[in-house]
Amino acid sequence: MVTFVRCATAADAVAAVRDGDGTAKFVGGGTALVLLLQMRLVQVDTLVGVRTIGDVPGWSGIEQRGNVLWIGGGVTLAEVAGSALVRGYAPSLARAASVVGNVRVRNAATLAGNIAEADYASDPPAVLVSLDASVVVHDGARQRAVLARDVFTDFYTTSLDESDLVIGVAVPLVDGSVSAYRKFASRSMEDRPCVGVAVSARFEDGAVGALEVVIGAVSGTPQRWPEITERAWGRRLAAPLMATIADRYADAVDPIADIRGSAWYRREMVRVNVRRALEEVAASADD
């Protein structure tokens, strides 16, 4: 028997999950959890509805808070994708949110839920890591921020406790930064990514001031190699440099093989799509 409790406060929600002792789960849009229930892959007695939480400032909103872009825990992927703020400040995140699942999933699923699910073949995690975003969680007593790159630890696994409620995502806003996300699908255009590439960069006088390249969908967690990208700092992002970074990433990655592509193919797609994402970023910097 599954019961559904609708929570008005974050503390209530956390308490409900804690009281469930492993049999209660947060549910926002429900797209992931209901699927697991239908497939009898999870045993859940209590669904803790968080859509109705009213005591978290900015729960349902996207707002600029100083030098941070805040996306509340109740915000759907469709809202992220359509937000002028996100499109302006973090276009790669708007792009990633706009290609998750389909229009129906994006209308129901929240960015917070997407993070908590930690699906390796979903688009936003790599982008959040590339933007150096923080995931803000409430544990019933207090809030804390965890860097996105420290959240994703394995396939469908995070460093968060099951009673940690994601109440929002904080994306740092950096002057002059540009970003891009490329989803590469190997079958239907509607497929989940075979490879996802998130790039975030800042340019100073035509040279790279900072560069992050994060690969999604190729292994359990978003993959990044700062030692490769840091070598670009201070240099112009010209074609040979982009090709070199792409080659190094292709060498560094240890891809899975699944129905969307073999390890060999994924490695090649990392090579091509890293280069193309860098070209995109370089072009947008020139604009």
Binding site: V2, T3, F4, R6, V27, G30, T31, V34, L35, L37, Q38, L47, G49, A78, V103, R104, V105, N107, A108
Partner: peptide, 17 residues
């Protein structure tokens, strides 16, 4: 659902109260 297209197979009925 509240005017937005969603999949009814991914919603428990208790959630649409």
């Amino acid at each position: 659902l509240d005017a937005l297209p969603v999949s009814s197979c991914l919603l428990l009925t208790v959630m649409v109260d």
